[in-house]
Nucleic acid binder design. Sequence first.
DNA 1: AAATATTTTAATCATTTGATTAAAATATTT
DNA 2: AAATATTTTAATCAAATGATTAAAATATTT
Lengths: 209, 209
Amino acid sequence: MIIPLSSMAKAKHTISVSAEEKIREAARRVFMKKGYAATRTRDIAEEAGLNLALLNYYFRSKEKLFGIVMEERMKQFFGVITPLMYDTTTTLDRKIEMIVSNYVDMLLQNPDLPLFILNEIRHNSDLFNRFQAGRLIHGSHFVTQLKEKQPGIHPLHFVVSILGMTIFPFVAKPVLQSAGGINQQLFVAMMEERKTLVPKWAKAMIKMK
Amino acid sequence: MIIPLSSMAKAKHTISVSAEEKIREAARRVFMKKGYAATRTRDIAEEAGLNLALLNYYFRSKEKLFGIVMEERMKQFFGVITPLMYDTTTTLDRKIEMIVSNYVDMLLQNPDLPLFILNEIRHNSDLFNRFQAGRLIHGSHFVTQLKEKQPGIHPLHFVVSILGMTIFPFVAKPVLQSAGGINQQLFVAMMEERKTLVPKWAKAMIKMK
DNA sequence: AAATATTTTAATCATTTGATTAAAATATTT
DNA sequence: AAATATTTTAATCAAATGATTAAAATATTT
């Protein structure tokens, strides 16, 4: 009995998605919605419309499958900011605009992503350490640019503020909708507005005495 | 057999904490650290140094015990901002200073609180709806004050930005420490700095054309 | 002190859950 | 087409988990 563990060469010519892929996609949806601990492997099998044993046949264990999903999602979450952080051909102002705009666009499509990522990392910080992004912020060109404009303030203050203003609304979305009386349509409209508001504010902050 | 469910009158004169209270405190620590789904009732009993059956004797079920802990923690989390939101005797600028300062102080003592609250609410939004804070933001004096200064911008934009800049660093703490090279001591120092930075930035944002 | 009520414990239940197995079904190679 | 390899399934296992029970221990009242 050969165990594929998601790496066997597929000689399949089927048009439809492979069972392995169906499981990975189902796992992504269920893990993202419920988190690792609250997810049952049976939930994933059911979501994929396949037998439970296939999950272990292709991925060995719940934990290994989760690791694969988690790595994909971390790439998506940090992929928005990483290339821009190290870009040396773009002005600081333009970078800020792009970071905010790219994040809002991506998060409108994946509103559960930040809370999922940040919560799972908190419960297992190895997940993040195993990820490449060891020196994501520290030593980036973005940080250098910030330090030039405001040598007196730690550049991370600005990074945290920009990301906070951009990402936090999605983290707090359920509360905003209940306590703030914001429906889905208004939420989307406000996030679109923030694409121009947040960069404007951020630039002003960086120029401040 | 009488079932107390945390409401029996205590005729006890013992100096030490009651078993019921020990369990509630242990539950708070374990639930906050691991979240509802990952918490085993046995973890709580062990943390409290008491027999597992006592948990069900005093609180009927894991879910009921969690509900009690959750309500306490939501009061703490939203209690920082609620009174200030409705205060009509304080200037907008002063309110902003106090919101940020009070939150930073509280979160330095309870760094896991935001992620715990926001994540559990996401997985069971009834938890928040059952909570009183139905109209926490909408209709508050704080919102009125914001609307006066900037009629063109939805006041929630400012609320979200101020809370984002204040709370987000705690939500992203594990990532900041790994990717930003921030140790605990520097983190605390930076949060202290933000007590003056964030209000200064927020005021500038609100005054902007 | 005896009787009664309350608190705590050890043992046990019934389900749930991640994982395995052996066989059946399907595809691929010879 | 036969032989072989791969994929899928139903049945099952062992461990974990929330909860209960009956009895023991302790406190309170009479």
